[in-house]
């Protein structure tokens, strides 16, 4: 434990600002993955343990497109939509067969998908870790805000994720599609009785979740190691986020992701050797006090 450095940090504006922006960097990427996980659970009632796969696919596709075309925007699009397409195929081929099935069966299928896609990535891109490289635009010194430091690329990432959060909230709250989605989450039988195609809704929601995970992977590719199995650690974290925030709640995913981000950055100062443990203790506490999560609907 090193509580001194934690308290001395709270005494300095620059430190608080730096650590808070770092919390946002970690949290917002996590949010992109976790929100897909939570959407899929809220509507399809499937805990998609294979969600990390789409994060990995997004990263690899972005890397390949960036290194062949040199265009970063194109790489982002490829990562997001590529993952969405693969997601759509997987939903049709496998996921759609396990809706409403024994949860053990769902876990098993997801586990199989992780095994298969990690090996496929190894077959296609090789087992080596890869680095995509930072686009030239962002190869600039970090900016200083009130003495706190933030790299421009991370500011860009936070902005993209924040924009997505807003768009998502608007779509769910204001559009007809959002209404149908909310209704389908509540009572799928009624929705389909009204002549709305729930099969298409489910497929779309699943693909949208994968798109967000793929985009997160593409955004992470310039700074994180791209390798088979990279989806795993992000899966565990986003899983914790959704449990803390409440399965099915978008606001919960955002708050949970930011909480974990802050816990990580400030925890690194105060508890350098038990940072990870803090996360699990927090998760146990939330589950015990409020099993459905901070923003979850009271579970049955």
């Amino acid at each position: 434990m090193d509580l001194d450095s934690l308290f001395s940090c709270f005494a300095s504006t620059s430190c608080v600002i730096t650590q808070t922006t770092s919390g946002f960097i970690i949290g917002m990427l996590l949010f992109l993955v976790a929100v897909g996980l939570t959407l899929i659970f809220g509507i399809l009632k499937v805990v998609n343990f294979s969600h990390g796969v789409f994060y990995m696919i997004g990263a690899y596709l972005a890397l390949t497109v960036y290194q062949t075309t040199g265009s970063f925007p194109l790489a982002l699009l490829a990562g997001g939509f590529g993952a969405a397409l693969v997601g759509l195929a997987i939903e049709r081929a496998f996921m759609s067969r396990i809706y409403g099935a024994n949860p053990l069966m769902q876990i098993l299928v997801c586990y199989a998908l992780i095994l298969i896609f990690d090996d496929l990535a190894r077959l296609i891109w090789g087992g080596d870790f890869r680095s995509m490289g930072m686009p030239d635009v962002f190869q600039v010194p970090p900016v200083f805000i009130f003495g706190g430091v933030a790299p421009p690329y991370y500011i860009f990432v936070i902005a993209v994720a924040a924009a997505i959060a807003i768009v998502l909230a608007l779509v769910i709250a204001r559009t007809r599609f959002g209404k149908i989605v909310r209704a389908a989450a509540h009572n799928p039988a009624m929705v389909s009785a009204l002549g709305i195609n729930t099969v298409a809704i489910y497929a779309l929601v699943f693909a949208a979740g994968c798109l967000l995970a793929g985009l997160a992977g593409a955004l992470a590719a310039p700074v994180r190691t791209v390798s088979p199995g990279m989806g795993f650690s992000i899966l565990i974290e986003s899983f914790i986020v959704t449990v803390i925030g409440g399965m099915g709640s978008i606001a919960g995913a955002l708050v949970g992701a930011l909480l974990i981000g802050m816990l990580r950055t400030f925890g690194a100062l105060g508890f350098p050797l038990f940072n990870e443990g803090l996360m699990y203790i927090f998760m146990v506490m939330v589950l015990v006090i409020r099993p459905s999560g901070l923003f979850g609907k009271e579970a049955a």
Binding site: P103, G277, Y280, P291
Partner: peptide, 22 residues
């Protein structure tokens, strides 16, 4: 054991990770 269904699964997983970390 007070938690039901998927929440039971989550909390056991969290304990497992804690034991592992310990």
């Amino acid at each position: 054991v007070r938690l039901k269904e998927i929440y039971f699964s989550f909390v056991t997983l969290a304990f497992q990770m804690l034991i592992h970390a310990t």
